[in-house]
């Protein structure tokens, strides 16, 4: 039986007094690539944020790598270190004078008290390798505020790959990318998933990409409406259950 990296049972999350996610249960097997789809306001980002401990959850259980998460999102540091998150937007970067190499280095360091010069040589080496893996070596000295949308996403992947991880959670990674940049990004993500052995959970509106690249799909509209392999979960009948009648699929027009 495959190892379960993430197990969710009866999860309910309230946001600003409203139940945004209700009684959701699912599990992700090791090295699987699962898409979380659903209409706007379906609770996808809320679910992802609860799974990462960014939002508290009101009831239900979450287990990451076999360890339970507290209601306020508490996880042991050893488990937390194996999680990576790629946010939908990364807006504050424009005001911060931080180079790409320094930013990626932040993904290498464990949180907590540390002397500023601690582990600097090992960090530099890990950063060099991470940037090489994502094809970002030439961006090392550039400020993160100077990057294009596609470069930013690749640098965020470098941040994830700078240290071995087990679970990667992406919230609409294709947001802000044109079709060519999105295609390159997913190509890179696909390669890294194989080489790094990542288990992936990604929020997406691009059902064509989901159909082509993911092993499993979770269809959310506050509660989980259906799940399974893309052929089953993205059938017209199932999509109507999730998105409602008259649903027109979104196409990204990949080449």
């Amino acid at each position: 039986m495959a190892e379960m990296v993430l197990e969710v049972r009866g999860l309910t999350v309230r946001r600003e007094g409203v139940t945004a996610v209700e009684n959701v249960s699912f599990a992700l097997a090791a090295e699987s690539d699962t898409a979380l789809v659903g209409p706007n306001g379906a609770g996808k980002s809320t679910l992802v944020q609860a799974l990462l401990g960014i939002l508290p959850h009101q009831s239900g259980q979450v287990q990451v790598l076999g360890r339970p998460m507290g209601p306020q999102g508490q996880l042991p540091a050893s488990v937390r270190a194996q999680l990576a998150y790629l946010p939908q937007t990364f807006t504050v970067r424009n005001r911060c004078p931080l180079s790409v190499a320094d930013f990626v280095g932040l993904g290498w360091d464990p949180p907590g008290l540390q002397l500023p010069w601690h582990g600097s040589e090992r960090r530099r080496q890990a950063v060099r390798q991470a940037l090489a893996k994502t094809g970002c070596s030439d961006l090392a000295d550039q400020l993160i505020s100077e990057l294009s949308g596609g470069q930013t996403k690749r640098v965020l992947l470098s941040f994830c790959v700078v240290r071995p991880r087990r679970l990667l959670v992406l919230d609409e990674a294709q947001a802000g990318l044109d079709s060519q940049a999105a295609e390159q990004f997913y190509g890179l993500l696909f390669d890294l998933r194989r080489s790094e052995g990542w288990t992936i959970l990604q929020v997406s509106h691009d059902l064509e990409m989901v159909r082509r690249t993911c092993d499993g799909v979770l269809c959310l509209n506050r509660s989980l409406r259906c799940s399974g392999p893309p052929d089953h979960a993205l059938s017209p009948a199932q999509l109507e259950r999730v998105y409602g009648r008259g649903y027109v699929p979104y196409h990204h027009h990949h080449r």
Binding site: L83, Y85, D102, L106, G107, D109, Q114, L115, V169
Partner: peptide, 24 residues
Amino acid sequence: LGLTRRDQILLTLDEPLAIARGVA
């Protein structure tokens, strides 16, 4: 600020990213 420098920078950059990394 010196001893928590990396946590402070990450928190300054993006709070959700910092929480996901385990920053308090």
